[in-house]
Design a protein around this nucleic acid. Structure first.
Lengths: 142, 142
DNA sequence: TATTGTTATACTCTATAACTATA
DNA sequence: TATAGTTATAGAGTATAACAATA
């Protein structure tokens, strides 16, 4: 690692490299799933919060609205979710999973679980908790 | 964060979110620089290791060879580096910065420095070191 | 045979701006 | 006037496969 020189002290680089490693491993692990990380997290979020709106997903997952649209459209085309009318705000929509969506989410949880096992195998439980705490200070600043 | 449910325990998600936050901040901070994170890291690496070959950059920065090509081409078009013939292997090339390349790297270091200050401001020095150590276990597994 | 650089291609991701309908 | 959804578009990133020259 000496060849990296002082580049090795750049925290941003380490996060970028770690993210790349995780993305590549996910692609292999999720080959048969036919869902991306983002699509899974959206599916997961709707499963945990039936009736959630696109804007809320955008905020929670820090994806811009246009990209959320593309993801929702794709998942709807595959009949994994429905866009229901909101009971309280005619501008927004209440997103819910279909039966096929729940099935796909269950499969995705399996894949994500194995992927997370691969990732967390290198840490003690307390280290995982601390890593998450440290990373949260970046994406959810106090 | 309760709305995320057990999604909050997925380490991969936290790294993806942190990476996104950093990428967005970099884009703002580097507006006048006209270089991407990858371009800067390549420039930096060549500055620290004159004569390095594309394949080495590919390995160290974990970027596939085709993408390294695109980056090197772009930097060469902007006259920030030269492709010299390798003294030992006719297949590979020795990459070196031009004077303009050194100047651009110096400017980039300023921008990266400010960006890293923003990022590391939320940590004690020991926390930064530990975070880097933990992340290194992902992108450079033992 | 394996590696280095190279080209071409396709797909995903991301950001932006603008439009509509509702609030 | 602000927000939710929508559409279109352009740019960056990523992955793959194939080829020529060299090891």
């Amino acid at each position: 690692m000496a060849v990296l020189g002082d580049l090795d002290t750049i925290l941003g680089l380490h996060i970028r490299l770690a993210h790349g490693s995780i993305r590549r491993h996910f692609s292999e692990a999720a080959g048969d799933l036919d869902l991306t990380q983002k699509q899974v997290s959206v599916l997961w979020l709707i499963g945990a919060n039936p009736g959630i709106a696109q804007t809320q997903i955008s905020r929670l997952l820090q994806i811009d609205r246009a990209s959320v649209m593309a993801i929702i459209n794709h998942l709807q085309t595959r009949a994994l979710l429905r866009r229901n009318a909101s009971a309280t705000d005619a501008r927004s929509q209440a997103l819910v999973l279909t039966d096929a969506g729940h099935t796909a989410l269950a499969e995705a949880r399996q894949v994500i679980g194995a992927h997370e096992d691969w990732l967390q195998a290198r840490y003690a439980p307390a280290e995982v908790a601390q890593l998450i705490a440290l990373l949260s200070r970046i994406h959810s600043p106090q």
